[in-house]
Amino acid sequence: MVEIQKKRIPWNLIKDKLFLSIILVLSFLILVPVIWILGYIFYEGFSYVNWSLLIGDERNGGILNAIVGSLIMVIVATLFAVPVGVLAGIFLSENKQSRFAEIIRVLVDVLQGVPSIVIGIIAYVWIVLPLKSFSAFSGALALSIIMLPVIIKNTEESLKLIPGLLKEAAYSIGAPYHKVIIDIVLPACLSGILTGILVAIARVFGETAPLLFTAFGNPDLQFSLFKPMEALPPLIYKYASSPDTDMIHKAWAASLILAVIVLILNISTRLVIKKLKR
């Protein structure tokens, strides 16, 4: 017995080392394109970021209208998508067996697979045509529909991780259903839900297609939800395909600004989550 074990130990150690190195190499391989892309955007865009770009709208050679438009539409989309998505996620995790939940689950999967341009067209038919005008509102709605499946799935998954013991404890001292969910379940998986919301926001910050037929674009800085509005991704698309080198430089600068906004959002949410966990 003792001899057998002695012989096996080196082999296991070698296998462990091998496994660890494979994991390290693979994660490095993933890191390379990410860093390369970010580095490239920084390299191409940084020298063209300047004050006049940040404080003027397109008529005055800046992109402020697109920055503000992106922020407004994403915020409005988040305000729509978060309550609906989180509640739907709670419903799905609380009713694992029910037929209705099963149907919703399938629909959410389907929704996740619908190309974002199609969602843009739907928002066009639902909102733009009846109101007879392109609008930030219709753009935000399209974005919120794209956010929904991400938030729902993530909420459902993080709620599933809550041990049944915890809910039992709350029920056993006479907490009613809504109290169990609000006081015990939601705080326990808040960080998971926030992560899902963050992923959804980061995704729609970069969406171009759903805004083409909805928010449409607007060279002026404006704050009304019922008028056309510019956003960063369509602006980048427009500028990058122009023959004018000045426009192409601005497209790189706008790309860098978009990446930085998403990065700031990401880091600050992570800090908040860390605070909450403590």
């Binding site: 041990p163 013991l165 915890l166 039992e168 404890a169 709350a170 029920y171 056993s172 001292i173 006479g174 907490a175 009613p176 109290k179 006081d183 015990i184 705080p187 326990a188």
Partner: peptide, 28 residues
Amino acid sequence: RRKVGMVFQKPNPFPKSIFDNVAYGIRI
């Protein structure tokens, strides 16, 4: 369940402070 309380086989404190764990039932 407020009349018939229960202590479980496995300890299951809430992810809250010690004080809030005990106070929760009284508060609700």
